[in-house]
Simulated assay, not measured.
Amino acid sequence: MHSERPSWFLRLAAWGGLVFLHFPILVILLYAFNTEDAAYSFPLQGFTLRWFAEAAQRGDVLDAIWLSLKIAAIATLIAMVLGTLAAGALYRRDFFGKEGISLMLILPIALPGIITGIALLSAFKTLGIEPGMLTIVIGHATFCVVIVYNNVIARFRRTSFSLIEASMDLGADGWQTFRYVILPNIATALLAGGMLAFALSFDEIIVTTFTAGHERTLPLWLLNQLTRPRDVPITNVVAMLVMLATMLPILGAYYLTRGTSDVAGGGK
């Protein structure tokens, strides 16, 4: 008789995979609280919050965090607007060139980051735009739009168009239909897409490297710290904070979209 319980081998393999993936993260978490300022002394000598206090007093750390937050917020806002508009335009009707437009929307996240970065840098140089905060925002928005677009168009496809038709039959104009019918149906998908886009933008490094110029976002700051072994404890603290800052939006997006397949008009 077939058992629905997984075999011990599959369970062992699953737990082994989880340990393999998360062990480096655990190492960073442990050494962020290590009393020793040596790079990675083992065993740990004690527990301290000293490095958190020192990181909070570093102006370069705070500047990098603030810059990353601003860029991620602006890129996410742009992505939420453009991604929602694109999803609304493409989700229902077929027209010539639709597949090509869909491909162009998804392409930035499908391409390797280094290709996207080089392409963006070449475009900015051609247009005479100097790399800086503006170019970073544009670069991040190119792949953040994809995240929002995919989330919203999936929700659009599970929302019955009869709701929109009923709203129009009852005399609502386009804005009222969007405000009171469409937006409530796509709200969680839109918010989840925005949270995922924020997390991706906050820790993006490859595209940022090509578009940052003299700006230093938090991921670039962390990359530069690899050549400074004396700052390893502070680097571990900042890396832990980055992991938390990106993990929380992802978990939030998961809980927002969990169990939402039964929305109005949901089905295959």
Rank of each mutant, 00 (worst) to 15 (best):
A199V: 00
L241I: 15
A245V: 11
F202Y: 09
L226I: 14
N224V: 09
A189G: 00
Q225F: 08
L244D: 11
D173A: 08
V237G: 08
Y180Q: 09
L196M: 14
F202D: 03
N236P: 00
I186K: 00
F202W: 04
T209I: 15
T177H: 09
I186Y: 00
P184M: 08
R230C: 03
M243F: 15
V181C: 09
V232F: 14
L241R: 07
Q176N: 13
P184N: 08
G194R: 04
A192K: 01
I186W: 09
I205D: 04
G174A: 14
L248V: 14
L226F: 12
Q225L: 12
D231M: 09
T188C: 11
L241V: 12
E204P: 01
L241S: 06
A187F: 12
T217N: 11
T217Q: 10
L191M: 14
L244T: 02
V207A: 05
G193L: 03
R179Q: 06
L226E: 13
L196D: 09
V207K: 07
S201V: 05
P219G: 03
V238F: 02
L196S: 00
L241E: 08
L222K: 08
V237M: 05
V242I: 15
D231P: 07
M243G: 05
P184F: 09
A192W: 03
L190W: 10
I234K: 01
F210L: 10
N236T: 03
V181Y: 06
I186C: 02
L244G: 11
L248K: 04
M195A: 14
L191Q: 04
I182M: 14
V237L: 05
T227I: 14
F178D: 06
L241W: 03
L220E: 01
H214K: 15
P184T: 00
A197M: 10
V242Y: 06
N224Q: 15
D231F: 05
N185G: 07
A239W: 04
V238P: 02
P219W: 03
P184Q: 02
I205F: 12
V238Y: 08
A199N: 01
T208Q: 06
I234R: 05
V207M: 07
M195F: 15
M243S: 11
I234F: 02
V181F: 08
M247F: 15
R216A: 11
R179A: 04
A239L: 04
L200A: 14
P233L: 03
A239G: 02
T208K: 04
Q176A: 15
A212W: 06
N224I: 13
T209E: 14
T188F: 11
A212D: 07
E215M: 11
H214N: 15
G174L: 14
A192N: 06
T177N: 10
F202Q: 03
N185M: 12
T235A: 03
V207Y: 07
Q225D: 10
F210Y: 05
A245G: 12
H214G: 13
T246M: 00
A199M: 04
I234A: 05
I186G: 02
L190E: 10
Q225W: 09
T209W: 13
N224A: 15
Q225E: 10
M243N: 09
F198G: 05
P184A: 06
V242P: 06
P219E: 01
T217R: 04
